[in-house]
């Protein structure tokens, strides 16, 4: 019998860098997180292929070669930067309405339930309590309390079809993206970042004006904060591009 124990010590160490969000959590936090769409191709024959194809999309990148692509609305924050909701006392300032991703930690519903063992291993410097006094949370490939895991998985499934339609639509109108996807898929850890506005513009379900009004100042703030961070150059470039992309809408919204 394999048991794994875990207790959160509220050290705040996992509140750094980017996190994938459900679409609802991303939109609800447009005035807080700088958002991006992260596209991660997953090879056929890997464990997570089936699940990824259900959460995201499937793309034929060459004759006889298909990849699943996870399309993740993401709080796109450099690894060295704290979550903007992390308070000075290292506690979450939005604890009662924090994203599902944060609630489910350290479990990860983008993987199958029986593949959670290594996400329970704390990363370097994290102060998770894994000792004998911590409760058993994972037993023989089963999560003991599945409440948050299931809720987050449902949150992901809820918008799977709209993310699928977005991905297929963008690939149709933007041919270089298909080449880029095929190239990225050659690298087993490859992924790329697409401006979040491409999602909002691909359909008419969401109001890009009110989104731009909330998101634009967040991007401006993150662009400023990363301007002189040498290890956040990619993020800085993304914020700048996303600002240019939303400027027209933000201006129109504030008229």
């Amino acid at each position: 019998m394999i048991e794994q124990r875990f207790r959160c010590t509220a050290c705040g160490k996992c509140c750094y860098g980017e996190i994938p969000l459900t679409l609802d959590d991303a939109l609800a936090n447009a005035d807080r997180f700088p958002l991006a769409m992260v596209w991660t191709p997953v090879q056929q024959g890997t464990k997570v292929f089936q699940l990824t194809s259900r959460l995201g999309t499937i793309v034929q990148i060459a004759k006889g070669k298909t990849v699943a692509v996870l399309i993740a609305p993401t709080a796109y924050i450099p690894p060295s930067m704290a979550c903007p909701a992390l308070a000075p006392d290292n506690l979450c300032s939005i604890h009662d309405r924090k994203p599902m991703r944060c609630r489910t930690m350290p479990f990860y519903p983008y993987r199958n339930e029986d593949a959670q063992s290594d996400v329970l291993v704390p990363r370097k410097n994290w102060l998770c309590d894994m000792s004998e006094t911590a409760p058993v949370v994972y037993k023989n490939g089963k999560i003991v309390d599945r409440t948050d895991f299931d809720r987050e998985r449902e949150g992901l499934m809820k918008h799977a079809s709209v993310l699928d339609a977005y991905a297929q639509g963008l690939l149709k109108v933007h041919a270089p993206l298909m080449e880029f996807l095929a190239k990225t898929a050659l690298n087993p850890t490859g992924r790329f970042v697409v401006r979040f506005s491409t999602f909002l513009l691909m359909n008419k379900i969401y109001d890009i004006l009110s989104f731009a009004k909330k998101q634009h100042p967040v991007l401006v703030e993150f662009a400023d904060r990363t301007a002189s961070m040498p290890n956040a150059a990619d993020h800085h470039k993304y914020y700048k591009e996303a600002i240019a992309d939303l400027a027209w809408f933000a201006k129109k919204a504030s008229k």
Binding site: L201, M202, K204, I208, L209, W248, F249, K252
Partner: peptide, 8 residues
């Protein structure tokens, strides 16, 4: 057709 996008 996304009218806002076209206007932009």
């Amino acid at each position: 057709f996304n009218r806002l996008d076209a206007e932009r």
